[in-house]
């Protein structure tokens, strides 16, 4: 870990036992829940690699569900997360799965929201509580939640990215990273914008008003 800072060495404040299998898992659940953007009704959770093998003793199952419920890694209710979720009427199932060429600590969420909207999310826990999301609704992505993250789904056409980034720039927001992936030319596309600053509801509404926008998801900053 080069260029580490003070609170990389002392921190995070977290519920144990493992920064990768517990704290990171909470963050993955949290991001998945924010991508669905509404309360989860049904969650099918596929565990890969070390999450499947040693997840049970590390409370990885609890941590993933705690995140879906909106808890952060220092929430002492994490160990009761599955009970709490059942209390809310959430239907959860876990399966071990081979997710292919992904990090050993990886998970796939197949979520259905209370309004029947669906979302699939694949993410990995990289150690020290750090995570990365690698797939959203079948689109390949790469973001960490360390920045203010905005996901825009739209139909690809020339100039679309410029229209989105112009809106972002005119709000005075600096883009740290951006990744575009699409099903094909002129087909559905997904852009992830990681910004240095908070993205306002006003800006989100402005982006939603652009032509050919399918959906806009704002995850905020998770760290």
């Amino acid at each position: 870990m080069k260029n580490s800072r003070v609170f990389d060495l002392l921190g995070p404040i977290m519920v144990g036992p493992s920064s990768s299998h517990t704290a990171g898992a909470v963050r993955l659940g949290l991001m998945a829940g924010k991508i669905l953007a509404m309360d989860t009704k049904n969650a099918r959770i596929l565990l890969h690699g070390s999450f499947a093998q040693t997840g049970k003793g590390h409370g990885t199952h609890l941590a993933l569900v705690a995140g879906l419920l909106g808890m952060y890694p220092d929430d002492e209710r994490i160990k009761d997360a599955i009970q709490l979720a059942e209390g809310y009427g959430l239907d959860i199932s876990f399966e071990n799965a081979d997710l292919g060429q992904v990090h050993p600590n990886s998970v796939k969420f197949e979520l259905t929201g209370t309004n029947n909207q669906r979302a699939t999310i694949v993410g990995s826990s990289l150690g020290g509580g750090k995570v990365t999301i690698t797939e959203v609704n079948e689109f390949k992505v790469k973001f960490t939640g360390e920045y203010f993250t905005l996901i825009v789904v739209y139909t690809d056409y020339p100039g679309m990215i410029a229209e989105i980034t112009t809106k972002v720039a005119s709000a005075g927001i600096n883009i740290a990273q951006m990744k575009v992936s699409r099903e094909g030319r002129g087909r559905r596309a997904l852009t992830v914008i990681e910004a240095d600053e908070v993205i306002s509801n006003l800006l989100i509404e402005q982006i939603k008003e652009l032509p050919k926008i399918e959906s806009v998801m704002y995850l905020g900053q998770l760290n």
Binding site: D8, L9, L10, G11, P12, I13, M14, V15, G16, P17, S18, S19, T22, A23, G59, L62, D74, E76, I78, K79, G128, G129
Partner: peptide, 21 residues
């Protein structure tokens, strides 16, 4: 033990070594 029991600790520098400091 608090860490292993899913209690709240400070990773220092890691969760596994959280008791020393």
């Amino acid at each position: 033990e608090v860490n292993a029991g899913m209690g709240k600790i400070v990773a220092a520098p890691t969760a596994g070594a959280c008791g020393v400091l």
